[in-house]
């Protein structure tokens, strides 16, 4: 193969690039801007406000005595314990479901990956943006719950509600780690959203039920079991695993996740799925 002659030109100027952390910040900033401009953020915000409105209306209509919400702890358990996991799961589906797969299906990834930045910066930047957008919804939802709590029970908010808030954020972190991992598995947005929705809305709860009730095995490997600490911490006393004699003298256990166990499950889910999801994205090809 003949080699064409070389023209002489000036020295190649190598541009100085920002650090990878700064590039993560850039991705986060524009991903958030994209969220705020798109409908999905406002749809989820409206869903959160509607759920809050339903609780406000129910409590207002029936009254705390009729609902047997005689203490502040009982009130927060009723409101927060019964609904925050749904808000967290919806955040995971809305912001994480197609976060990575959408880059392939919609070809937006082609705009980014040809630039001098690591793929991990894209992944982490998008994850932080999803977490930030979710936390905004989460904060509004929490503010409405606290507002109602203060209205009925005054400003003395039980410390367990603070614990539950922290555990909810931990659950959100784990759910987003998991949804990003699933999003990295697929190149189709609708497929990754659908699978994530089915898993969190039905499959995990069903598996947890089957494993704990029928097989009588503690479902420590299910993320939704770990998330049980969000509601459990709002109960007084904190529920414990109990064994009773069922029909035919068979021992039947009702499992309750402890706080250390729940934290370990949620942290474990986040760490494992975040690492695998990142590795998958690093290796995935824009074919």
């Amino acid at each position: 193969m003949s080699k064409p002659s070389l023209k002489s030109v000036g020295p190649v100027a190598v541009p100085s690039l920002p650090t990878s952390i700064a590039q993560v910040g850039t991705i986060t900033k524009y991903e958030l801007l994209n969220y705020f401009r798109s409908r999905r953020f406002f749809v989820l915000l409206i869903i959160g406000i509607v759920i809050s409105a339903i609780f406000t209306a129910v409590v207002g209509y029936y009254g705390i005595t009729y609902l047997n919400l005689t203490s502040a702890l009982g009130f927060y358990s009723f409101w927060w314990g019964n609904s925050i996991t749904l808000v967290v799961i919806l955040s995971g589906i809305f912001f994480g479901g197609d976060a990575i797969s959408g880059e392939f299906q919609n070809k937006t990834g082609y705009f980014l990956v040809g630039n001098p930045l690591r793929r991990s910066s894209i992944y982490i930047g998008k994850w932080i943006a999803a977490l930030t957008a979710s936390l905004i919804i989460f904060a509004i939802y929490a503010a409405i719950a606290v507002g109602n709590g203060i209205y009925y029970f005054g400003t003395s908010i039980p410390y367990q509600f603070g614990d539950s808030l922290v555990f909810s954020v931990l659950y959100l972190v784990a759910v987003l780690g998991f949804t990003f991992f699933f999003s990295s598995l697929f190149k189709s947005s609708s497929m990754s959203i659908l699978v994530t929705a089915i898993l969190f809305l039905f499959a995990f709860s069903l598996i947890e039920l089957i494993v704990s009730r029928l097989a009588q095995i503690e479902p420590w490997f299910i993320i939704t079991y770990g998330a049980g600490i969000i509601g459990n911490v709002l109960m007084d006393p904190y529920p414990l695993t109990q064994s009773t004699r069922g029909p035919g003298g068979r021992e039947v256990s009702t499992f309750a996740v402890s706080i250390p166990q729940g934290i370990a499950i949620l942290v474990g889910y986040f760490v494992i799925t975040a690492v695998i999801g990142l590795l998958l994205f690093e290796r995935k090809e824009f074919t």
Binding site: P18, Q23, T26, Y30, R37, T108, F111
Partner: peptide, 28 residues
């Protein structure tokens, strides 16, 4: 390097100014 491979899509909710600002920031 500047590249254009396979007619990429840009986030539809962004304006060209914002999309190009993102590239400018990534490139320092």
């Amino acid at each position: 390097v500047g590249s254009l491979i396979e007619s990429p899509e840009i986030y539809p909710a962004l304006t060209p100014r914002e999309a190009l600002s993102m590239v400018a920031e990534i490139r320092g």
